[in-house]
Amino acid sequence: MPFSPETPPASRRAYSLLALLLASVAGSVNAISFFSLGTHTSHMTGNLANVGEYLANGKWTMALTAAQLVLSFLLGAMTATVLIDVSRRRQRGRHAMALLVEVLTLAAVGIWSTKHPAAKEPTMLWGLCFAMGIQNALVTRVSGAVVRTTHMTGVVTDIGIQLVKMMTWVRDGARGHGVGGLVWMLRKLPTAEQFARTRLHLGLATSFLLGCTVGPLLLFKFGPAAMAMPCGVLVLLVLLDVSPAGAYVPMTPGT
């Protein structure tokens, strides 16, 4: 598993970089889609809830619209899984195909929006949900279902759990050693191996928030061309993935 203590440090750093950058992409896409189209597209909880609520109110057309977003996300996840399975035996570039499809999808939505700034085509939302489905499935497969980048509910939950564990670890280690023991444990905390996942999750939440902030700022200033920012990050990840120096280590068989 890429984020387990048994994984070499260099590999963990590579996968962490992938996850952090993708979290910023998801945050920016989610915020841009909300401000420009009125809907979040990086997580499906609200959209799936909307399907049920609209059905309960007899709003069949709106229920169908919400269901289409969920289906688009699902198709994106399926697409990423197929592309990862096809590429799993490559020496490098194992994630490049899925990332490129995500880039092309986001770029197509951005270009269409630039040429038709007043349009509210449902296909634009479908494309954004499809792209986020690709990304979520990619990170889920790569991390062994440890990391998500398109929604933060689980990440924030894990941060809360780990913060309590960290406080307990410091308390137990410092017990009987006074203030000096407490200071010593606090100094060890940033490099404690058992809390590596906590640092990653804190980074994911921060990256997602950064994307949610920068994306709208670029949208307000440059319009739909703001989609160039997440596309640029994804292109960078593709280049890192295919380059000999920056390629990620092989995925665990069966992931």
Rank of each mutant, 00 (worst) to 15 (best):
2 P>K: 05
2 P>H: 08
3 F>K: 03
3 F>I: 07
3 F>D: 06
4 S>I: 10
4 S>D: 12
7 T>I: 04
12 R>N: 13
12 R>K: 14
25 V>W: 07
25 V>Y: 00
28 S>K: 00
29 V>T: 10
31 A>L: 02
39 T>F: 14
41 T>H: 10
42 S>W: 03
45 T>W: 06
56 A>H: 11
62 M>C: 09
64 L>M: 15
66 A>F: 05
67 A>M: 11
74 L>F: 15
77 A>V: 07
82 V>I: 15
83 L>I: 03
84 I>L: 15
86 V>T: 07
86 V>M: 12
92 R>L: 08
93 G>C: 04
98 A>M: 03
102 E>T: 02
103 V>T: 10
107 A>N: 01
107 A>V: 11
110 G>D: 03
113 S>V: 00
118 A>W: 05
121 E>Q: 05
123 T>I: 14
125 L>F: 03
127 G>N: 10
132 M>V: 03
133 G>R: 06
136 N>Q: 06
142 V>D: 01
147 V>A: 07
152 M>R: 04
158 D>M: 04
161 I>K: 12
164 V>N: 09
165 K>A: 14
173 G>P: 01
174 A>M: 08
177 H>D: 11
178 G>R: 03
178 G>Y: 07
181 G>S: 06
182 L>H: 07
189 L>C: 06
189 L>Y: 01
190 P>N: 07
198 T>F: 15
200 L>Y: 02
202 L>M: 14
204 L>M: 00
205 A>P: 08
206 T>A: 14
211 G>W: 00
215 G>R: 04
218 L>H: 11
224 P>C: 09
225 A>S: 12
228 A>Y: 09
230 P>Y: 02
238 V>M: 15
239 L>E: 02
243 S>Y: 07
244 P>H: 09
244 P>M: 13
250 P>S: 08
255 T>L: 13
